Amino acid sequence: MKDTAARLREAADERTRERLPTGESLRRMIRAWEAGEHRPGELYTELYSRVFGVPAEELFAGAAEVTTVGGSDDELEALELARRIEASDIGRETIERLELAVDELAIAYPGTPPGELLVRVRRHLRYVFQLLDARKTLDEHRRLLVVGGWLSLLAATCHIDLHQFSAGGARLRTAAHLAKHADYPEIAAWCLETQAWQVLTAGDHQHALDLAQAAQRVAPKGGSAYIQATAQEGRAWARLGAARETRETLDRVARLVAPLPTPDRPEHHYRYDPAKSDAYTATTLSWLGDPAAEPYARGVLARLQSTTDGPPRPRRAVSARLDLALALLAADQPDEAGHLTLTAITSGLLVPSNYWRAAEVISAVETRHLPEVAELREAYRELCGPTHPRPR
């Protein structure tokens, strides 16, 4: 509590600092806010936002929002009970359960709507922020920073999926800040890779290439972030139309992935698995217009819809359909491409960050003057509403 008061004071400018109450008065206000008795005023929400690097509207999301998703209250109540029975303020059991919660949330990512997952991630983040003020050992402090870094990174990914780029950027900055203080380069590299993915989807392909290469320089060699950033580099080269560089990068990814076993939970968003490599190869080759993309994309889609490499991953399967559709257009098979695209658009599983990929396929189908174009465009309009760009 005393630490929070000091950090709020440090975040204030000189004039604002003069307006803050002193000593026990401020600590009493903080206790009331953290107990949920009432919400801080505008001045204090802004200071909290500066301290934690999270937008105020995200940090102080109301209780009504989080009670709509089953299981969230139960998860945190169990964590709090575990903490209270420990001898210390935090304790090994609480940290371990938080680390397990991070894994479960990352595993839930491929099959959970991003808005729904974001609610759960926010609740865990608020709990971590509360624990940062508790007495703890240096090891507990570092592990708590790492948990906060992973949660902030996952929250950023959900925001980007939802096209909430300002909030996503703030979350990425927080994750990078926590990674720096915890001396945890894996998270720092994932932050750069996530930025590369965001700008790639926005069409800034050269910037995406630079960020993907920067992520590789930061990441532990051979780890999941390093492999993912290398794969992202290949996608950026493909969008730039650099065929030789694209294939060289795909060869590097293949060599990195070759010795990897299939993980127990391949759907974990931050653990690279061999099946993901094939999916990235299919995407990259389809963007390059390489005929080899079609068999890759068909194989990826078949695996994602089966249980060969773990449970079905329907969101990834939707992206695989769009990859296959683009590959089929390159192979002059527009009818099947149109059908696959319509299936993806009407699935209810396509997230806003991938709308542009559907738009790209629709534009390519339109040049073939197929009768299905009108149905595709109508389905796309219903999917996007008024806030997303139409296919050109």
Rank of each mutant, 00 (worst) to 15 (best):
T283P: 00
A279S: 07
T308A: 13
A302R: 15
A279P: 00
A302T: 15
L301A: 00
D278G: 10
A292R: 13
Y280M: 01
D278V: 04
T307W: 10
T308V: 13
R303W: 07
V300H: 05
P311V: 15
D290F: 08
P291Q: 03
A302P: 11
R303H: 11
Q305Y: 02
T284I: 13
A302M: 12
A282Y: 03
D290P: 08
G299K: 00
L285Y: 09
A292H: 08
Y280V: 01
A293Y: 09
P291S: 05
L301V: 00
D309F: 12
P295F: 08
G289K: 05
S286E: 10
E294C: 06
S306R: 07
T307F: 03
T307D: 15
W287S: 04
A292T: 01
A297W: 01
R303E: 12
V300I: 05
R298S: 03
L285C: 05
P291L: 04
A292Q: 11
Y280G: 00
T284S: 08
T281Y: 04
D290E: 15
G299W: 06
L301Y: 00
P311E: 14
A297E: 02
T281L: 07
A279W: 01
Y280L: 02
D278W: 07
A297S: 14
L288F: 04
P311I: 15
E294K: 12
P295H: 10
R303S: 08
Y296M: 13
S286Q: 05
G310R: 02
S286F: 11
A293T: 13
A302N: 12
P311L: 14
Y280R: 02
T307E: 14
Y296L: 11
S286G: 10
L288C: 09
T283H: 11
G310K: 02
L288W: 09
A282C: 08
P295G: 11
G299A: 02
G299R: 10
A292W: 01
T283W: 12
A279G: 01
Y280I: 00
T283F: 12
D309Q: 09
T307Q: 15
D290N: 06
D290Q: 05
G299H: 07
G289Y: 12
D309S: 04
G310H: 02
D290L: 12
A282S: 06
T281I: 02
P295S: 09
A302C: 03
S286N: 13
A292K: 06
S286K: 10
S306V: 03
Y296N: 08
P295Q: 12
A293S: 14
G289R: 10
D290T: 09
R303V: 13
D309W: 11
A293V: 13
G299I: 05
A279R: 03
T281R: 13
P295W: 06
Q305F: 02
A302Y: 04
G310Y: 01
L288P: 11
P311W: 08
R303N: 15
P311Q: 15
V300T: 06
A297M: 05
A282V: 00
A297V: 07
A302I: 09
R298M: 04
T281V: 07
A279I: 00
G289W: 10
G289Q: 08
V300C: 03
D290V: 04
